[in-house]
Amino acid sequence: MQLAFDRRADGIDAGFGVPVGVFGEGVPGPLVTALGGVSVDVKAPPLSDALDGPDMPSVASVAEPFLDSFTARFLHRFAAGSFDTFATIVFARDDVAGLAAYQYATELRRQGILPAAGPRLYLWNLLHTDSAPAERFNRRELERLTAHLEDTLGATLDPDRLADAVAAEARCAQALHALPPGGPDAFVARNAGRWLPPDVHADLLGAHAPDAGATGPSIVLVGSACDIPVLHSLCAGLGQITADLQDYGRIAPTARNSADLLRHIAHDPLATRASPPVRYTRALQEGTEGADLVIASVDANDDSFGWELPVLRRTVESRGARFLNLGFRPFRPDAAWQDMARTKIEEALT
C-alpha cells in the first residue's frame, strides 16, 4: 500500500481496468467499476512530484500565482501527458481546486495551447441537500454521468455488476473503519485505495496490521485538503488523533445501495456545499466534540474552508478545550514550518 500511496496515478496497474481520473470527493466509484473502469485520484500528485514533477511552459504562461497547488500540479502533469492513457477525468464541482482545474484544462484545449488528444474532461455536479428538486437534479446528473461513462468506456451498465461493485466498496469501507483514525501508517493505508480497485484495497487492509493506537490527549484536525500525513507525524508522541475531518483525512461517504447510488453521498454533511450551510457548521462542531485540542490549518489559496473557524473556535473553547490555528499550511511543508507547528502543538497541550 505504501507503493500505491507514493506513486499514486503514476503507479496504476494496467490490469486493474481502464483508468478513469477523479478529482475531488463525491464521484460514485461503483458506477466506474461496474462499467469496466478503475477510479484513480488525480488531485494528489505522486510524492516524487515535489522534486522532479514537470514544469510545462504552456501552463506556466497562463497559471496565476494564486492557483491552488493541487490545481497547478494537476495542470502541469496534464500538459506533460501524465494522463494520456486515461479514458476520461471527472472533476467534482464541489472541489474548489477541481473546478479550477477543469476550467483551465478545458480552456487550454479550446485555445489550442494543449492538444485535444488525451482523456475526455467531465464536470460532475451534485447538490448536497434533501429537497425534491435537488433529488431530481441529482438523478439527472447521474444519468448524464452514466451516459458519459458508457460512451467513453464502450460498455452498458449491468445491474448485477453494479450491485457487485457496491458490495466491494462496502467491504472496503468496513475495513477502512477498522483502522485507527490517526497516525501516519493508518493515513497511508486509508488513502492507498485511491489508486487501487476496492476489492484489492479491501484484501490488503484485511492483511494489514496497523500500528498500535496512540495515547494521550485527544486531537482533532480540521482544515482544507491535506494529502500527506504531515500533521499526523507532528502529533506523534504528543497525543492521539481521534478524528481528521480534512479531505484525505476522513473516510468520505460512498454509495451504499445500487438502487440509490447518490443518497449517502449527497447527504454528506462535511461536503463544502452542504445546504443549508448550518449542516456543515454543525458537522464540524459535532466532529470536534470530546477533543482536548482542535488543530486548524488551511491552504493559502483554498477558499472553501476558513469562514467557519471563528465560530468553531468559540464552540471548542466553550467546552474547555483548546483551539490552535496554524494558519496557512504549505502544500509541502518544509522543516522550518514543521518545527514551528510542532512547537505550537506542544505549547497548546501544556
Results as ranks from 00 to 15, higher is better:
6 D>L: 15
7 R>Y: 13
8 R>P: 01
16 F>M: 13
17 G>D: 10
20 V>F: 11
21 G>H: 13
24 G>Y: 07
26 G>V: 06
26 G>Q: 10
27 V>T: 11
28 P>F: 06
29 G>W: 11
31 L>Q: 05
35 L>C: 04
38 V>K: 06
38 V>Q: 01
41 D>W: 03
41 D>Q: 03
47 L>I: 12
49 D>Y: 04
58 S>L: 15
58 S>D: 11
59 V>P: 12
60 A>L: 09
64 E>N: 09
67 L>M: 12
68 D>K: 00
73 R>N: 08
85 T>S: 13
95 D>P: 00
97 A>G: 10
97 A>M: 00
99 L>A: 05
103 Q>F: 01
104 Y>P: 01
104 Y>M: 14
106 T>S: 10
106 T>C: 00
106 T>K: 09
107 E>N: 08
111 Q>V: 10
113 I>V: 15
113 I>S: 08
114 L>A: 05
114 L>M: 03
116 A>W: 11
118 G>C: 06
119 P>K: 06
119 P>E: 04
119 P>L: 10
120 R>M: 08
122 Y>E: 14
123 L>W: 07
125 N>A: 13
129 T>F: 09
130 D>F: 09
132 A>Q: 13
139 R>V: 13
139 R>H: 13
141 E>I: 11
142 L>E: 14
143 E>G: 11
144 R>T: 14
147 A>I: 11
151 D>Y: 05
155 A>Q: 12
157 L>T: 12
157 L>A: 09
158 D>S: 13
159 P>Y: 01
160 D>A: 15
162 L>R: 05
168 A>D: 14
172 C>G: 01
176 L>I: 06
180 P>A: 07
181 P>Y: 02
187 F>E: 04
188 V>M: 05
189 A>K: 08
194 R>H: 11
197 P>S: 08
197 P>C: 09
199 D>R: 15
201 H>L: 14
208 H>A: 07
210 P>F: 09
217 P>G: 01
218 S>E: 09
222 V>L: 00
230 V>L: 00
231 L>N: 02
233 S>D: 08
233 S>V: 02
234 L>T: 01
239 G>N: 03
239 G>C: 04
242 T>P: 03
244 D>S: 06
250 R>L: 10
250 R>Q: 06
253 P>G: 03
256 R>G: 12
259 A>M: 05
261 L>K: 00
264 H>D: 12
266 A>N: 02
266 A>I: 02
267 H>N: 11
271 A>C: 10
273 R>E: 09
275 S>F: 15
280 Y>M: 13
284 L>E: 02
286 E>G: 01
287 G>H: 07
287 G>Q: 11
290 G>T: 11
292 D>E: 14
292 D>Q: 14
295 I>M: 05
296 A>I: 07
297 S>N: 13
301 N>R: 12
303 D>H: 14
304 S>H: 05
306 G>K: 00
312 L>S: 06
317 E>G: 07
318 S>A: 15
327 G>I: 10
328 F>N: 15
336 A>Q: 14
336 A>F: 06
336 A>Y: 00
342 R>M: 01
342 R>Y: 03
